[in-house]
Design a protein around this nucleic acid. Structure first.
Lengths: 120, 120
DNA sequence: ATAGATCCTGGACTATCGTCGAAGTCAAGC
DNA sequence: GCTTGACTTCGACGATAGTCCAGGATCTAT
């Protein structure tokens, strides 16, 4: 499928998709007319990229994962390791957000109770 | 206190502190020699700024909060509203990270079980 | 065959958040 | 009085991640 349709399906802009390809995150074949020809399987892949990005992974690190993936099955252990490391990162983020929520709740409670600026 | 000490105490670089002032997030008096003269109370304030930033708030939005704060106590309701809105945002982030962690666990499980790339 | 939509590439531009350098000022110790 | 170190401003530079445009090619429908 062409970039327009692929963009609609994945919710990622065409400009961004070309940018991702330029960065090496996605590899796309061309049709005889020289246009990008995305496969069905690419949909899940870029959605995965999107999730990695949404959880704070830099494009440079996503590219590293991508390179492993395109290199074939023998890179599985490395990819697994990467995912596990990323999970640790995600868990750390969860702890961080929980702490911030508590902190914020404290501030809100101060506002509510005193009704005056408490150095905020 | 001067910018160097303030920077050490808050853990925010002097370049960044000047940048924040330029952006309107912090207001700092000058001593007779024209140097920035931070107060004790500013420490808590910039640490709060830091937390807001760490939780994804844009400097532009932090500036808005800052403007309200410097405007005085009559802006309390607006500030309260802002904090509540930010808490909603934080809770949304928590849901996002939780969902993402689950998703990642699924992928990891696929890797572990099949030992083969499952479209990742 | 031609109009209109879609696509191509390369490079320029934007936003966000810093980070740094140059040239000059100021204060404290010797 | 002079050196040294920390400070001042202003503007340039850099990383990250897009976003867009110009000019040209190609595809689809009439």
């Amino acid at each position: 499928m062409q970039i327009g349709e692929f963009s609609r399906i994945t919710g990622i802009g065409a400009y961004t998709l070309r940018y991702y390809e330029k960065k090496g995150l996605i590899r796309v074949e061309r049709d005889p007319g020289g246009r990008r020809d995305y496969r069905e399987a690419d949909v899940e892949w870029v959605k995965f990229i999107k999730r990695l990005k949404d959880t704070g992974m830099l494009l440079r690190d996503i590219k590293y994962y991508s390179d492993l993936r395109y290199a074939g099955d023998q890179t599985m252990p490395e990819r697994m390791e990467l995912l596990l490391r990323h999970r640790s990162f995600v868990e750390e983020q969860q702890r961080k957000w929980e702490e911030y929520r508590k902190n914020l709740d404290d501030k809100i409670e101060i506002y509510r109770a005193r009704g005056v600026s408490g150095g905020l």
